[in-house]
Design a protein around this nucleic acid. Structure first.
Ligand SMILES: [Mn+2]
Ligand SMILES: [Mn+2]
Ligand SMILES: [Mn+2]
Ligand SMILES: [Mn+2]
Lengths: 219, 219
DNA sequence: GAAATTATTTAAGTTTGTCTAAATAATAAT
DNA sequence: ATTATTATTTAGACAAACTTAAATAATTTC
């Protein structure tokens, strides 16, 4: 099946929003893709026609098995390019998403398998997200929670769930990256902010919003 | 100026066909881009509007200075990606053109300058073509002629002017690559075929058509 | 130099992916 | 259980990049 760039972007966005089982809503998809609900409805009809999604009027969208396969391929390409940009071209993690958003649409299984080999077949991308293999399988992520829900005291950063350069730049400024070990000093009930300490750094207080987007597991 | 993929492809094709000074013809451009003359006329109006070409009805097309600058950027991206594919991902020279045709449209000066650094700032691509630098300047190619017009006896292959995988596969089969040294054994007037010998290889006779597309300089 | 051929342009229509505005369905509030 | 609000779909339009068919210009040929 030969998909356009727009179709691939829709499929990937549906995959991203579909976490678990719940159907993806027209408005949510429009917001994610920075387009209008009317456009989403149009595209939904087309993708249903191509059997990539199941869609009934007013019932939201879910990926079909084919759609899921397609999504995983696009995600694979995206994350491998991100690895390339960070590992080989020394980009920092907040710069790569945008570029990978374009590179992911160069469709060549040979290119991607060679790129993967060249990178040493990485299994997680610069943001801690797992990279599907050529068959769409990916390492089950080790159990992790967002920092605001962690109950252990000493933690290690495993991923970031928001990949806006705004968040990533903030984390850079605070020297927090994948693998960073940190310790929870205090929870402040008033605004759910959290005081944390990274070794050799002064303790800092981060907002709930930031904490929700830092994934961690107990050390 | 933000150009679409189609516009970039047109500009690059015009650059390619414009060798020297003569204006590019509607039909030639349509043929090069595998589209129809009517489409070319449409696009010509648009590119003229954007001041990338000069174009008058029935008079053909030439790049404006801006257009030339744009073309050189696209060519730079194309050739750097080709280097990447061959040098880093072990593609062979006949496989890379198609992929570079897509990769070249990812527009990021930062990406390209880092890619260039990563590759050691190469100045010729896998087909022997010069790579423009960030300012559009490229090494003046050393004097070279096509094999059918060479007058010296002992020659070295410097480039191939047709980059179809058909020609490149033929050259692979005959162990001819950039830098290959060869000797002209005979010219056959009947069909302008040429007998050549590569060291450690049996002599072979190549058609005029092949000879026209192999660029050489005297050893 | 008129006729034939070839090249180019125009006109009209298609596909893809958008958009706005209006209509309708679903959900929440009172 | 109406009413108000929000979500979604439909209708109609638009821009980009194509196409085919017809019209016109330029070039060759005799
Ligand atoms: Mn994308
Ligand atoms: Mn990522
Ligand atoms: Mn291209
Ligand atoms: Mn090349």
């Amino acid at each position: 099946m030969n998909l356009s760039v727009a179709e691939e972007n829709y499929i990937k966005a549906i995959y991203k929003l579909q976490e678990g089982e719940q159907a993806v809503t027209t408005n949510a998809l429009a917001y994610e893709l920075e387009t209008k609900p009317a456009s989403v409805t149009d595209m939904a009809k087309k993708l249903k026609e191509k059997k990539l999604i199941s869609y009934e009027k007013y019932q939201g969208i879910t990926l079909s098995p084919e759609g899921r396969k397609t999504a995983l391929q696009v995600v694979r390409r995206h994350r491998l390019w991100e690895c390339f940009l960070v590992d080989k071209l020394s980009f920092s993690w907040e710069e790569v998403h945008e570029l990978a958003e374009e590179l992911e649409h160069v469709r060549s299984e040979k290119l991607i398998s060679r790129l993967s080999d060249f990178l040493g077949n990485p299994v997680i991308d610069p943001h801690g997200d797992p990279i599907p293999d050529a068959n769409g399988r990916m390492a089950k992520p080790r159990p992790q929670t967002s920092l605001d829900q962690a109950n252990a005291r000493r933690l290690v950063v495993t991923a970031v769930s928001d990949q806006s350069s705004a968040l990533l730049a903030f984390l850079n400024a605070k020297s927090i990256k994948l693998g960073t070990q940190l310790e929870i000093i205090a929870h402040y009930e008033f605004d759910n902010s959290i005081e944390i300490k990274v070794k050799h750094q002064p303790a800092i207080t981060i907002s709930e919003q930031v904490a929700k987007n830092i994934m961690v597991r107990p050390l």
